[in-house]
Amino acid sequence: MRLASVLLLVNVGPALAQTGSISGTVSLEGPAPAAKMLAVTKNQEVCGTSVRSRDIVVTGGKLEYAVASVEGVKGTVKPKSVLLSNTKCMFEPPYMGAGAGDTIVVDNQDAVLHNTHLGLQLGARVRTMGNWGLSDKGSSIRAEGPLRLAGNLDVGCDAHPWMSARITVFDHPYFGTSDQAGHFEIKDVPAGPHTVKVRHPVLGDLEQTVTVKAGAATAVTFSFPAARAANAAKTDE
């Protein structure tokens, strides 16, 4: 009985007793930028003549597909599966966080050949971590290797150059991806002061310090200035 209590204390007790969660909201100030229309240069019979860019997805001022993480905290990733879909000749999601060692499942929901090509950014270079041909609707793969290292993965489809996505892989479990309401949640964060960083492939990063209280949800809001979206649009031109 005593041994069991010790084990409980060591393995589970401290985590439960001394952690809290971070409940965040990410916004983009100003009016939502007009989504760019990307020209479709092939497979128009399936993809149409253009697709709406999803590089900035805002609903009612709330930013979807931003990835938040707690910086500088070590933790063990519990491997899980993450899903990346080729759908309507775009990737879903366009951006997400994943844990190092997660399994990636890639599927194809379109009746065209997609190839999903994951490239790990290493300084100015990129290294293929996996590249699969998914020749038709219903094709899917499941792979364990490509997400084993922390960092940014560029996702592309060599058959459709307008398709792009990103996955940021963390070597700890303290991250979350914002939903349509701009909301993310990071659970089981050790209590205490932390730097929370929000990343977005186009809008860049935001950081702030929060103090996580044990057993409580700490609210935090991030707001990207409208100028970031305007600058990104300018750079595109």
Partner: peptide, 20 residues
């Protein structure tokens, strides 16, 4: 070549299970 793909190029790997 098409089982392994050519890493670093657009040539992907074609697995039997993914492609029926």
């Amino acid at each position: 070549g098409f089982r392994t793909g050519l890493n670093g190029t657009p040539m992907p790997a074609y697995t039997a299970e993914a492609n029926n």
